[in-house]
Nucleic acid binder design. Structure first.
Lengths: 205, 205
DNA sequence: GCTGACATGTAAACCGTTACATGATTAA
DNA sequence: TTAATCATGTAACGGTTTACATGTCAGC
């Protein structure tokens, strides 16, 4: 149930519409929480209903848009959540990639190699996204970080940037590790191919 | 929807009851997929209904137990799944810990430190579980790996063990990385505490 | 007039979690 | 006899995904 906290985190920098939030939660944004459109709109409505958000309709040129902002209650709830001990749910102990990797012996080596290539490609993509986001945060070019810093005291700026940077460095480190794992996986496939060939040669001789 | 594939993977080593599977999918087993009891039993029933598993009731001494085994159809489905290109769903781009870490500036430093300590403790626990499982697999002491090797040709044993080992080494590497990240987080908290104290001292002077 | 970005939603299905529920067997 | 382990389930709820659905506005 972190979607609402992710929403509170983003909106605490700046009021936004559902459409704006969709962009932030898009997988390619480099943010650490992904969510689709059929999740965002109902959640915003629900949160407004619970008093965590306030909203008003804007009529600026284009079609009417609803702008959401964090209420005092929302700020409290977010602070409570960040400070609370996280519970480590079972979803952290579920990894379909590692699960698959355990059984690659039952498919041929070309499939196994493709599997690792795809995994590396996936994390290379994440890596570039996260690196870009990190850069935009440390050099203050991201509109969101700009708005956030503007709303906070100058002596807090250091910590605000430091934690965001640190979280993204964690993502980057993980991505690098997974890419390395995948590369080692490709090497393993090659080794297994060689040892199999070796055996086949020696048996018929 | 990997629970069924996790089940097929485990049962492909050896037929088992739901209760046995629960032990394997328990978070402390060091297996790479966690699932609870209200998930396992209905899923087994469903899979048997779809012809992926066969089952028979055992009356050996204790209370009647239902033993499940992978059918030919189940074996095919599992092979298909392992060989298929995985789709990388949005759940891979969701990390409530990193999300929280981004906003630690709004809580006091003792909370932030506790957060990182808890995260390190969590992965230290995982680490010891995975290391133990890895050891049991490479030295062939795990009953599951024994059964699996017994059911397969000798020239396949090498690859079977190698992939399982490699997957677990991936989990271990990730755990080590996360522990290091958490330790660096604690250092960051200390640094931020120091720089804040420094500022407070200099301002009233 | 059409395409693409803007902007917001609903419905059904699926997966997973928490809580509830039951009963047999074995060892202390 | 009582607690722990064995053994199997159901009900209600909550979160996520896929597919469906609608309409505006700007630029080509």
């Amino acid at each position: 149930m972190s979607l609402r906290h992710a929403v509170l985190g983003v909106l605490s920098a700046q009021p936004m519409t559902g459409y704006d939030l969709l962009e932030v939660f898009d997988r390619s944004s480099g943010y650490v929480w992904a969510a689709g459109q059929p999740q965002i709109y109902p959640e915003l409505k629900k949160m407004a209903g619970e008093g965590l958000l306030t909203s008003k309709v804007l009529h600026t040129g284009r079609r009417a848009r609803r702008l959401y902002a964090v209420s005092a209650k929302g700020r409290d709830e977010f602070e409570r959540w960040v400070g609370d001990e996280p519970e480590y749910g079972p979803e952290r102990d579920r990894d379909s990639v590692r699960l698959r990797a355990m059984y690659l012996d039952i498919v041929d080596t070309s499939r196994a190699r493709k599997f690792f290539e795809g995994y590396a490609a996936y994390y290379e993509d994440r890596l570039s996204q996260w690196r870009q986001r990190l850069e935009n945060i440390v050099n203050g070019r991201s509109p969101l970080i700009k708005a956030r810093l503007a709303s906070r005291a100058a002596d807090e700026h250091n910590a605000i940037v430091a934690y965001k940077r640190f979280a993204l460095e964690g993502q980057i480190g993980r991505a690098e590790l997974e890419i390395e794992w995948a590369r080692n996986g490709m090497k393993l496939v090659t080794q297994l191919e060689a040892s199999r060939r070796g055996k086949r040669k020696s048996v018929p001789a």
